[in-house]
Deep mutational scan, measured.
Amino acid sequence: MFYPNSPQTSPQLTQIPYGQQYAMMQRQIQQPYHPFATTEPQARLYPYHYQGPIQQEQGGFITQQSTAASPQYVQMRVTPVDQSIMSGYPNQTANGSSSSSFNYNIHPQQQQQQQQQQQQLRHHAMPVGSVPLQDDRYRKQLIVNYLAPDVTSTDLHELFSRFGELDGARIIYDKQTNMSKGYGFVYFCHAEDAKEAVERMSGYEFHGKWLKVGYSTNPLNIVPSNSSPYVHAGSRGAAG
């Protein structure tokens, strides 16, 4: 039997160049792979992502010199942007860049009308829970959420009447099932009393439920100042 490094198959040491006398086997001759043993700084910083320098080929596509990437890492192929796409944008300079302001050559009167329309939209648009300043009635009506099913309009009136005089209180019921929808409205005579009720009743436990109280901004629920107070009856038909 002959071994790869046996004296019968191995040459004389004098015939082997210096430095390879003890590297006779194939696994010894093959050098191990060192990912950080390279002179390129990109490979030292990113050993798993770097795959060699990027070269520009004919046709405008950018390719990489090395083989496919590892399945664990996804390499994105980048193509140059066609400058003709950006030619339609206004205020574009000769080098292809555009300024931040756009001039669509709008007539001054049209621009003024658009600004007025935007101001009107901001004036009428009102986020949930906010209180408008032009109508004091919005500051007097509250919406009470997360009410228990057994709470009546009379219970709601008695709960909030300790903060001040009320114009009314009612629970909203479903017309088909005649069941409470879980929320109601309270109408105060003074805005200061309503503000105190919002601050003190939010998070209050009532009939096993934690109440959420806020201003009601729905104009359909506003009680006119010259109208008669609501009837605080315990029956659902009268309260709904």
Score class of each variant (00 low, 15 high):
4 P>K: 12
5 N>E: 13
7 P>Y: 13
7 P>F: 03
8 Q>L: 10
8 Q>T: 06
8 Q>H: 10
9 T>A: 11
10 S>Q: 10
10 S>D: 08
11 P>Q: 09
13 L>E: 03
16 I>T: 02
16 I>P: 01
16 I>L: 04
20 Q>T: 13
22 Y>D: 03
31 Q>V: 12
33 Y>T: 02
34 H>A: 10
35 P>T: 08
35 P>K: 08
36 F>N: 00
38 T>L: 04
41 P>Y: 07
44 R>Y: 04
44 R>D: 13
47 P>N: 07
48 Y>L: 06
51 Q>G: 01
51 Q>S: 08
54 I>C: 06
55 Q>A: 07
56 Q>K: 13
61 F>G: 04
63 T>I: 11
63 T>S: 12
64 Q>F: 14
64 Q>L: 13
66 S>Y: 09
67 T>A: 11
68 A>M: 05
70 S>I: 02
70 S>N: 00
75 Q>N: 14
76 M>Q: 01
77 R>T: 05
81 V>Y: 03
83 Q>C: 13
85 I>E: 06
88 G>S: 06
88 G>E: 11
89 Y>S: 05
92 Q>A: 04
97 S>Y: 04
97 S>L: 02
98 S>Y: 06
98 S>K: 01
99 S>Y: 03
101 S>C: 14
101 S>N: 14
102 F>C: 00
103 N>L: 03
103 N>V: 00
104 Y>N: 06
106 I>C: 09
107 H>D: 02
107 H>R: 01
107 H>I: 15
109 Q>F: 14
109 Q>E: 15
109 Q>R: 03
111 Q>K: 06
112 Q>H: 09
115 Q>F: 11
117 Q>S: 12
117 Q>W: 14
119 Q>C: 05
120 Q>M: 15
122 R>K: 07
123 H>K: 09
124 H>C: 00
125 A>D: 11
126 M>I: 04
127 P>K: 00
128 V>N: 02
130 S>N: 09
131 V>Q: 08
132 P>G: 04
133 L>T: 10
134 Q>R: 01
135 D>L: 00
135 D>N: 00
135 D>H: 09
136 D>M: 01
137 R>C: 01
138 Y>C: 01
140 K>R: 11
140 K>F: 01
144 V>M: 06
146 Y>V: 01
146 Y>T: 04
147 L>C: 00
148 A>M: 02
149 P>H: 03
153 S>I: 14
155 D>W: 00
156 L>C: 14
158 E>H: 15
159 L>M: 11
161 S>T: 13
162 R>L: 10
162 R>K: 14
162 R>P: 12
164 G>M: 14
165 E>S: 11
165 E>R: 10
166 L>A: 04
169 A>I: 03
170 R>S: 02
171 I>H: 02
175 K>W: 14
175 K>Y: 05
176 Q>L: 03
177 T>R: 03
178 N>F: 14
179 M>N: 14
180 S>L: 07
181 K>I: 02
184 G>M: 02
184 G>H: 14
184 G>D: 14
185 F>M: 14
186 V>N: 13
186 V>I: 08
187 Y>V: 00
189 C>D: 01
190 H>P: 11
192 E>S: 10
193 D>F: 10
193 D>Q: 10
198 V>K: 12
202 S>D: 00
202 S>G: 12
203 G>W: 00
204 Y>R: 09
204 Y>V: 10
205 E>M: 13
206 F>P: 13
207 H>F: 09
208 G>Y: 01
208 G>R: 06
213 V>L: 03
213 V>P: 13
214 G>K: 05
215 Y>Q: 08
216 S>T: 02
218 N>G: 08
219 P>D: 11
221 N>K: 02
221 N>V: 06
223 V>N: 14
225 S>N: 11
226 N>F: 03
226 N>T: 12
227 S>K: 09
230 Y>P: 00
232 H>K: 03
234 G>E: 04
234 G>V: 07
234 G>F: 00
236 R>M: 13
238 A>W: 14
240 G>P: 03
240 G>F: 15
